[in-house]
Simulated scan of single mutants.
Amino acid sequence: MNIPLSNTRQPRLTPREIEVTLTWIASGSKAIAARRLHLAEPTVRAHIANVREKYSAVERSAHTKSDLLLCFLEDGHLHSGFRAN
């Protein structure tokens, strides 16, 4: 269950967009995330680009990995076992 930490507007992210973004945040690179998820690196890039566009559409900054991590924290997408490298 996702419990938002703020009242800010949230984009409608797909479960796959959340999974790919969290894997990328937790790993060192998009290439590593792609290997962990058995995806092509351009697919990882496309998911992250879509997530950034969706945050931009609700007027929230998500230009950097740190921005996305903060957005995901605020929106309740991080689970208690999440560990970023």
Score class of each variant (00 low, 15 high):
A84N: 06
S66P: 00
T64I: 08
L69C: 00
T43F: 09
E59S: 13
P4Q: 14
R9N: 07
F72C: 06
S27C: 15
N85Q: 14
N50I: 07
L73G: 00
T8V: 14
V58D: 05
A84E: 15
P15S: 04
P4E: 11
E59W: 13
E41H: 09
K54A: 01
V20M: 09
N2L: 05
H79K: 14
G28E: 15
T14W: 08
R36W: 03
A33T: 07
L5P: 00
D67C: 06
I25W: 02
A34Q: 06
S6F: 14
P11Q: 08
I25E: 03
R45M: 10
L13F: 08
N7W: 07
T43I: 06
I48K: 09
L37K: 15
R9V: 09
R12D: 03
T14F: 11
V20S: 06
Q10R: 15
H77V: 04
L68M: 10
V20I: 15
R36F: 02
G81Q: 08
L68Q: 05
I25Q: 01
L69I: 03
T14K: 10
P15E: 08
T64M: 07
Q10N: 06
L70H: 05
R16C: 00
M1W: 01
L39Y: 15
N2S: 05
R60Q: 15
T21G: 04
H63I: 11
K65V: 05
P4V: 14
P4L: 13
R83V: 14
H79A: 12
R52T: 03
E19A: 07
R60N: 07
D75F: 07
A62N: 04
A49C: 08
K30G: 04
R83L: 14
I3V: 13
T23N: 12
I18C: 06
L73C: 03
L68V: 02
D75Q: 10
L70K: 11
N50G: 11
E53Q: 10
S61L: 09
T21V: 10
L13A: 12
W24L: 13
A40F: 14
L39G: 05
K65W: 02
I25H: 03
